[in-house]
Amino acid sequence: MDFKLKIWKQKNAGSKGKFVNYEVKGISSDTSFLEMLDILNEDLIYKGEEPVVFDHDCREGICGMCSLYINGYAHGPDAAITTCQLHMRKFKDGATITIEPFRARPFPVIKDLMIDRTALDTMIQAGGYTSAKTGGVPDANAILISKENSDLAMDAASCIGCGACVASCKNASAMLFVSAKVSQLALLPQGKPEAAERVLNMVAAMDEAGFGNCTNTGACEAECPKEIKITNIARLNREYFSASFASEL
């Protein structure tokens, strides 16, 4: 398969970027999207040109490192996958593919398609954890958790923090990410003691970082590789109201 690529090239956060056109030829339909970029880069290096910089790590959809906004979709035009799980058979032979970095003010471009997602870590540092000392291993049935809550918490915990929600949101809001982290802990007894403090601090960190505000369009859940639902955002709001109006913090 042959493809025409329109790739965003940008020297660093301070410089102005532009699209550069590339061509790749003879790509197998079983090639993953990132492997296709590897082939392009090998070709570029061979020709003495500068390769295209992009984020990647585990390449099996669990680390949250890969990103890319491909033809108008975060992680490309397929549901519930990361870019590393996208294959070239999803595209038509000879197609033009536009590749942009995830765009948001809190996600400055480091180089080309690589972005700085430290803002997500900053929000986790603000409260996305429990600080209780765990002690020894408790009895299996010492802490009772309903099946429903355990499932909901597990669903929320499947967030890999890739930032596709921010990238897909027309407002560059990080509320799906924050809501997943808040929900995952608020649903379980271990997370309850610090729930109020956590939600206040995480929302403050979110606003501080300069993310936009959710307008309930649902674009984030449509693009989330882990299919995190916006019911989590409703839970985030409830947690926030109860922390703001009912807790003594």
Partner: peptide, 14 residues
Amino acid sequence: QNWLARPVRYKIEN
């Protein structure tokens, strides 16, 4: 705030 949160727009939108 929402507009400011994405100073560079996408070329191809969702």
